[in-house]
Design a protein around this nucleic acid. Structure first.
Lengths: 347, 347
DNA sequence: CTGTTAGCGCGTTCAA
DNA sequence: TTGAACGCGCTAACAG
């Protein structure tokens, strides 16, 4: 038999109303009574029944803000997958009186993200999930939010704050190590590797690069070398141009670590360079473009960020906070990031 | 505002009791009334509130049987991980009046599994999750169970039945294809591949072999060849002997697809054969032994069955059945099976 | 065959 | 500062 507030009430010789006031810190309780009730609750290892709780709270409709820096229909595989996970969790919790409020800021626009954030706060959200832009204005705003008592959960992308927030996503440093390991396993000759990243100002990319380079230095320095780093942004045209230019300047390149946001443009530049089919390419995430190129053999392997799982877990973690007031043990909740190849997508 | 039985009752001009009887098929309702209620419920797209439902059923304690063919402490990475997933889901649903009854049959003993199954049925379970042994006696017993109206969910391992049951686990055929693809990507020269499997009478292994061979034939026939298949059972001594003997008889082998249940014995045989460090080895599942050998470079990659996720999903699916009476669309619920390498386990 | 009602555990008035 | 009582949506027992 599970312990209920009624049992605690009887044992503490008070009414359930008083127990409720103590456990939910609504005050207006004599200190000695409060101590007695808390002691008994702890002794009995009381945990509220989430079914009853959500039923009682049904009319309250606790709000959770979900804010992302890309538009919902923007072609961003990682974020789109993240939302699939969020929606899946939302469906599971449909009956639990938690309503998600979705907001989108203009693509990578810091001011816009701050604006939307403020709008969410005015709606009275109890928790915030965000794919933050890594910018001091965002950081400081999030710090304010956290000090208000609203916990912040960054998913997919992370940002640095003074106050503790939570990150749900892959261990990007490790993903970089894995990429290096893959090149080592797949290589038929020493490699001069070009790195195509969407942005080093996204924290994850910086960590990824660090993991990649440190692994090469520590383990594979005799056969792998970083030949160039090029930043291809999230639009296909600049992505195309940047990669094209980089390849022109680095004829020695025979391998590419391809983590561009705008894969289509980057891959087009590669295909025009005659490296296609000869260069050893490892990518991030099986987006449509990447899948196509895995299937036709141009890309050998992709490291799956599995952002769907990240989105799903984000909502789970928030649910635990809302329901039971418990926050994660660690401020990093890492999602597994494994490797996929052509055969994963046959048929 | 969500639709409730009360709303349906008012619209149908009956009481909530009658609506409940209709929706839960308890009978004793005039056919015309039943039709009216059902129509309105459908029109309003009624879904019961799971919180209220589980609260009302709190004393009932619906039982779900979990039966596995290996002992809980037996060193079986796949099954152990499966249970971790089951426990995680169990914790999530702790407040929902579903109690899991765990039973274990003697290791791979068919009679024992039937016995334990019968014992579970006597306890009055509403659903069964099982890692079945692939044996006609199990099949026919499961068919009986299903025709009783108790749905059967096979996780990790599958079995063939006449009546429909559900499988939750990886697509083993695809895993075989992926293995072939990995050998192709990793090879430095043409490969003569030996296959070490725990048992071809486990359905999953048979599918895996099929996927492997068909992929080689279809795509990599010029550089990959299946040199030998050897069955290494779940104990380390026979595993050691079988692999040793196989290698002795096949000096041409320079690659191994290693999916042995008893990895320790098999790996020992390989290491004594002087193939270690030279042969290209791909394994299944990052069990402790496999992880160790990934780290020291003896194994290049492992295909992760991710049975933890399979266990988790199994309970989720059962919960949906218990709560909402909905069974999965397809009788195969496939879990992603991706690839891990050394760098996934550093530190 | 059908309606009424108590109660599951918790949150929230409203009185006292 | 405290207790009593109602309601969230649903099930089940009981009365008709």
């Amino acid at each position: 038999m599970n312990v209920t507030i009624k049992m605690i009430a009887e044992l503490s010789d008070v009414s359930v109303g008083t127990v409720d006031r103590v456990l939910n810190k609504r005050g207006k309780v004599k200190p000695e009574v409060e101590k007695r009730v808390l002691a008994i609750a702890k002794a009995l290892n009381y945990r509220p029944n989430s079914a009853a709780k959500s039923l009682a709270l049904r009319n309250k409709a606790i709000k959770v803000g979900i804010l992302s820096h890309v538009q919902p229909n923007y072609i961003n595989h990682a974020v789109n997958e993240g939302y699939k996970g969020i929606h899946a969790a939302e469906r599971e919790y449909a009956d639990f009186g938690i309503s998600l409020i979705y907001r989108y800021s203009r693509n990578f626009d810091v001011e816009s993200q701050v604006e939307e954030l403020d709008r969410l706060l005015q709606e009275g959200i109890s928790a915030l999930a965000i794919t933050p832009i890594n910018d001091p204005r965002i950081s400081s705003r999030l710090d304010e939010v956290i000090s208000t008592g609203i916990p912040v959960f960054c998913f997919i992308n992370d940002v640095i704050t003074q106050n503790t927030h939570y990150f749900i996503g892959i261990d990007n440093y490790k993903a970089g190590c894995v990429a290096a390991g893959l090149f080592n396993l797949l290589k038929k000759e020493p490699l001069d590797i070009a790195i195509v990243f969407p942005s080093l100002s996204l924290l994850g990319n910086a960590f990824r690069l660090k993991g990649f380079e440190e692994t090469i230095q520590a383990s594979y320095g005799d056969s792998l070398r970083r030949a160039a780093v090029c930043i291809a942004t999230n639009d296909d045209i600049t992505s195309y141009n940047t990669v094209k230019e980089m390849l022109a300047g680095h004829p020695e390149v025979n391998a590419i670590f391809f983590a561009s946001g705008a894969a289509e443009g980057g891959m087009r530049a590669i295909s025009e360079s005659k490296l296609m089919g000869k260069a050893l390419i490892v990518a991030i995430d099986p987006s449509e473009t990447i899948r196509k190129n895995l299937l036709n053999g141009n890309i050998m392997a992709a490291i799956n960020q599995n952002t769907r799982e990240a989105g799903y877990r984000t909502i789970k973690v928030i649910y635990d906070y809302i329901m039971f007031g418990v926050l994660p043990q660690s401020s990093f909740i890492y999602i597994n990031s494994e490797v996929v190849i052509k055969e994963h997508f046959l048929q």
